[in-house]
Amino acid sequence: MKVNSTELQNNFGKYLMLAAREEIIITRNGTEIAKLSALSHVPAENDTESATIREEAEAYRYGGRKASYEEFLELSQNSEERYEYIDGEIYLLASPKTTHQRALVELFGLFYNWFQGKKCTPMVAPYDITLRRNPENINVVQPDIMVICDLEENLNENDYYMGVPSLVVEILSVGTRSKDLIKKLDLYMYCGVREYWIVNPLNKELSVYLFEDQNIIDNITYRKSETVQSFIFPGLSAELDQILK
């Protein structure tokens, strides 16, 4: 199946599920630029099989460098730069632009106020989140915003959080769009995140994904002056025009 990049972006959840059954070729201006395909992974003991999604395009691999988890730790602990480690590849996090930061400030302010007096705590990057597909596949990411409902129970001796956030937010940029839409969506879905917000300042859109049992249960893309609604936190909402001014 072939689909243009705009259609894929607007209906990503649908094509993510279709990719488990057939190969999706992504085009831009009639030129093939990427491919979505389902890859079987080798499950750990007592692990269930699932599909991971790979986009086989040079732009997707750009910035990723293969390394062991130990190499990643050595690099990140001895550098002032920010890095993520996803499925054995290291990604340098570039300094965010103004549009990104404006959306981040608006959305985190809303989350901070809404969760006051509630069990769950919103946190903002930079803040490492360690996610494991299995004991050998360790990933470290820095979502723009994360909502954590088990903070105190999962702090290690070095004061790092080692649990799984209930909700994560990523704000897209040109450089991170493919990683956030493909790699991170699959990682969050597989590792137990319940809800994923993808903010797209480029198109003035916000997509919300609901995950359960390593599957997308529901997803909605909000546009223009619509009000974004959380699936898992009833009453948590956001005016899109306020977030993406």
Rank of each mutant, 00 (worst) to 15 (best):
A59C: 12
N46S: 07
Y83K: 01
R61S: 08
E45Y: 12
E55K: 13
N46W: 08
S68E: 04
I90K: 01
E81Q: 01
S40A: 14
Y85P: 00
S79M: 03
Y85R: 01
T52F: 05
N78F: 03
S76P: 00
R82L: 05
Y83E: 00
E56W: 14
E45T: 14
D47M: 11
E74R: 08
G64C: 06
K66H: 11
E80N: 08
K66I: 07
G63I: 01
I90R: 02
E71S: 13
F72H: 03
E56Q: 15
E84N: 05
F72W: 03
R82V: 03
I90H: 03
Q77M: 07
E45G: 08
E80F: 09
T52P: 03
G88S: 09
D47F: 11
N78L: 02
E84G: 03
G88C: 06
L39E: 14
E49Y: 13
A57V: 07
A59K: 14
S37I: 15
V42I: 13
I53H: 11
A38N: 13
E55D: 08
S76T: 06
Y91L: 04
S37A: 15
H41E: 14
E81D: 02
Q77V: 08
E49S: 11
L73M: 05
S68T: 09
L92Y: 00
E80Y: 08
E80A: 00
Y60H: 10
I90T: 04
Y62Q: 08
A59F: 10
H41W: 15
E81N: 00
A59P: 07
I53W: 10
L39H: 14
S76Y: 03
Y69V: 02
Y91E: 01
E81C: 02
E71F: 09
P43T: 12
N46M: 09
G88F: 04
R61L: 09
R82P: 00
E81F: 00
E55P: 07
S76K: 04
E56A: 14
E84H: 06
L92I: 01
S40K: 15
S40R: 15
E71M: 11
L75G: 00
E74A: 04
L39Q: 13
E56G: 13
E56H: 14
E45Q: 10
P43I: 13
A59M: 13
A67L: 10
Y62P: 02
D47G: 10
A59L: 13
G88W: 05
A51F: 15
H41V: 15
G88M: 07
Y69K: 12
I90G: 00
I53V: 15
K66L: 11
A38V: 12
E74I: 04
R61V: 07
L39G: 11
E89K: 12
S76C: 02
Y91Q: 01
Y83T: 00
R65D: 01
T48Y: 09
R65P: 03
A44I: 08
S37W: 15
N78T: 07
Y62D: 05
G64I: 05
L75M: 03
